[in-house]
């Protein structure tokens, strides 16, 4: 079994579900699936102009891994443009910044759904928790 993928942190998911070419004669109807972390990589590197090391730290992955995600993102976008394909965003291996917490006592990672009012660790009920972001 290969090593499990570390989750990539995404600060905000893309605000769109996808992009579709218009004015094309025949839209190739198999969409390109852009993962959330790939969108995030493009955003950090090309929109916020961070260097790869800073961006990698923000996403909680190593610099080489960031470079791979970024490269895959660029290739997918290029493919969509050249082959007039639709781009669809899919979740991928991301975790979203705001909903996840880390317990400093038992190191569990958990969500707190809006139906719960208490901000305690889901496993050991410790109050020593922090939202996962830097």
């Amino acid at each position: 079994m290969p090593r499990r993928r570390r989750l990539r942190k995404v600060v905000a998911p893309p605000a769109f579900k996808g992009y579709r070419p218009y004015g094309a004669n025949n839209i190739n109807n198999e969409p390109v699936e852009l993962l959330y972390e790939e969108y995030e990589a493009i955003k950090l590197a090309d929109y916020e102009m961070l260097n790869h090391l800073e961006a990698a730290e923000l996403m909680g992955v190593s610099r080489p891994t960031f470079a791979r995600i970024y490269e895959s993102a660029r290739r997918k976008i290029a493919k969509a443009l050249v082959e007039t394909k639709e781009i669809k965003t899919v979740y991928g291996h991301a975790w979203l910044d705001k909903n996840w917490f880390n317990c400093k006592d038992c190191h569990a990672i958990f969500t707190i759904p809006k139906t719960l009012t208490e901000q305690v660790c889901a496993l050991c009920s410790s109050k020593n928790i922090e939202p996962i972001n830097k």
């Binding site: 909903n99 958990f110 969500t111 707190i112 759904p113 889901a122 496993l123």
Partner: peptide, 12 residues
């Protein structure tokens, strides 16, 4: 998430 079920991840 939609059904407000709390998820807990333990990697041990």
């Amino acid at each position: 998430e939609k059904f407000d079920i709390q998820m807990v991840i333990i990697q041990n």
